[in-house]
Design a protein around this nucleic acid. Structure first.
Lengths: 236, 236
DNA sequence: CGGTGTGAAAGTTTTCACAGCG
DNA sequence: CGCTGTGAAAACTTTCACACCG
């Protein structure tokens, strides 16, 4: 591969092109999170093996993952944290801020309106919507709950590109349809249902009960293994 | 493989043994969720290709995934939804109910106390803890917030095996240490930090900002691809 | 020396394709 | 016939191991 880099890469060098495996992108977010913590604690550089150890990955994996996007390291030194953070944010798209539209202002929605973690990664819930007349007009965490009929206009007005669905499961598809009609490009769905969406709309599902279920499996199967359950033949 | 099954499998036939890929287990949860929806709408049987189509997987993948755990289908017919649901819950460990201890009763924690989705999958938040004297003693969604010093005793008393961390990021590790000391076997962590845990404690992390970040990447890179960004060579 | 970047090898997961069954 | 269960092939991901660099 053509190369004679000495200075840090520009973000414009990023591929963004060939399909990077999803699992690599999810580790990228973990690298970024850890790097931000390291910088906050004063660390300037880090090696792939240090970073990997902190997260439970191998050094080779860290290097390969980063290698999908460019060359960020300095042989003999490692990675400069601040540079790598900037590069990762370029890759992930969070060097600019994102306005998000929230649909559903129930318990969970209201809690998410106050969640500080979004802002730290450059996401702002710029508007929130509900159909319940008892909620519309209320101001929560500085955001006035609007009627969902105002969604399309507000999305346009505020340059909103991402939506978040926090309605009860039986109204989730309708909320999704509304967000799509309003022109949103991606949706995070907290309702426990698989949405039907056009292919051009990106989609991330978060099912809180499923997370517990995965834990249940892990605990249960670890137990079975410890009990010496041998190979899984069906017959005696 | 030895086999002459005609009747549905008993759950005791489950392997629980060889390492089933994590990604398979996560799809299991999606299958289960979809099956529950189907049963609720009156459907009795389903084929692997129908189920796959609903979730965006291939028929072969559905069959292979289920094949890790046993034989559940009827050739020419498909799977009987109620049977398959029971089998999946056996596998995932949710045919019995789980008591969960929540640490942190802030905005998000309080919202999760009221989340109906947990109960539907057989999880109950049986106790909630905080250090804030202004919160301890309050009753939220029928749960009295206890001081965290009562954690170990309550875990024992109520047979709690799973913990949920919903404290601010800087207190997450301490919360984890407390849960581990109390004897919990698995932890769902909503704080944006990688916990250091003993190997025998299972661990699922949910970082809400990272979910948005993944969406940001998907939207950004889809855009780049549409713009015809070619292969990612660094040099002109 | 301590570290990256990267081909090649090993390992894992998905897809294919088809025998077999009710 | 319609569909499962499953080996075998293909595709993908991770690990290894080493040239190269400051």
């Amino acid at each position: 591969m053509t190369d004679q880099r000495t200075q840090p890469l520009q973000s414009s060098d990023l591929p963004s092109d060939a399909s990077v495996p999803k699992v690599v992108v999810s580790r990228l977010s973990l690298y970024l999170r850890e790097l931000q913590r390291l910088v906050a604690s004063g660390q300037q550089t880090i090696s792939s093996s240090q970073l990997g150890t902190l997260l439970g990955f191998s050094d080779a994996q860290v290097r390969k993952d980063l290698g999908f996007f460019g060359q960020f390291g300095y042989p003999g030194v490692g990675y400069r944290c601040d540079e790598l953070i900037r590069a990762m944010r370029d890759i992930l798209g969070t060097n600019h801020s994102w306005n998000v539209a929230m649909v559903g202002a129930g318990n969970l929605g209201q809690a998410l309106l106050g969640y500080r973690g979004f802002g730290r990664q450059n996401f702002a819930i710029a508007a929130a919507f509900d159909t319940d007349p008892a909620k519309v007009g209320n101001v929560i965490q500085g955001i006035r709950i609007q009627h969902i009929d105002e969604l399309a206009a507000t999305v346009r007005e505020k340059g909103i590109r991402l939506g978040m669905i926090v309605v009860p499961v039986e109204r989730a598809q309708e909320a999704a349809d509304r967000l799509v009609a309003a022109g949103v490009e991606g949706i995070v769905n907290f309702a426990p249902v698989t949405l039907v969406l056009p292919a051009h709309v990106q989609n991330v599902g978060v099912d809180l009960a499923i997370e517990l279920e995965q834990l249940s499996f892990a605990v249960t199967s670890k137990l079975a293994r410890a009990a010496g359950e041998p190979a899984g033949a069906v017959e005696p």
